[in-house]
Design a protein around this nucleic acid. Structure first.
Length: 208
DNA sequence: GCCCAGGTGGGTA
DNA sequence: TACCCACATGGG
């Protein structure tokens, strides 16, 4: 068993198996709302949005001011409202259904998603994992930092290199739980400027 | 009042 | 190519 697997297994014991699946468009919208935003505020904005608008078609025709008001709790609401409407229009006009993209070969699907303005690597990989059933491990700010601090990826690795390093060391069926557990761990013990070394459950595995 | 939160795109050197 | 910054609210 790799060190990365030991880390994931221990974190999964603490935080549980938290992976989930959902419709591709809803994963996309929720992931955009979560950008630079905590989970609680993401959930409030997501509930506001989907209780008012159900489909990409409805969102593509929404008033940007109303949408921004609904998304306000998530912060960055003007930019997120604009992007979500633009993406909803693109999906409606070009694909009809976003699942047509996520069902493609993983490399093609990822490239298609990344070509959409507002979708970067983290958002694309969340969609592929949580809606497309592809074996990818989304690397967000916590995962990026923790992978390096634990020595699971080279210190000079960029986003893509961290993703490749982790995917090569962890069993694919654990990617969802690993992503969520690493983020939970990052929030609780291993914050950017305040790692709680000495009381952290991974102290014996940490090289920092 | 300050810091932080499950990023991304655009500008600048 | 590699940084740097705007975007912005809400809770601790």
């Amino acid at each position: 068993m790799t060190k990365a697997e030991k880390v994931v297994d221990r974190l999964t014991e603490i935080y549980g198996h938290l992976s989930w699946k959902d419709d591709a468009f809803r994963v996309l919208v929720r992931t955009i709302l979560s950008q630079n935003t905590n989970y609680r505020n993401t959930r409030i904005a997501s509930r506001n949005l989907f209780s008012r608008f159900k489909t990409p078609e409805e969102i593509s025709n929404a008033d940007i001011g109303e949408l921004a008001t609904l998304l306000r709790p998530a912060g960055l609401h003007n930019i997120k409202a604009r992007r979500i409407i633009e993406i909803a229009r693109l999906i409606t006009e070009k694909y009809g259904d976003l699942s047509k993209v996520t069902q493609k070969n993983v490399d093609v699907a990822r490239a298609d998603l990344l070509s959409i303005k507002g979708i970067g690597p983290k958002t694309a990989d969340c969609i592929l994992l949580f809606a497309g059933a592809h074996d990818v491990l989304p690397v967000d700010t916590h995962v990026f930092r923790i992978a390096k601090r634990l020595g699971l990826a080279p210190q000079d690795a960029d986003h893509e290199a961290v993703k490749i390093a982790l995917e090569s060391q962890i069993s694919p069926e654990k990617f969802g739980s690993a992503h969520i557990a690493l983020i939970s761990f990052g929030r609780e013990y291993c914050r950017a400027r305040n790692p709680r070394c000495g009381e952290c459950p991974l102290d014996d595995l940490c090289s920092a």
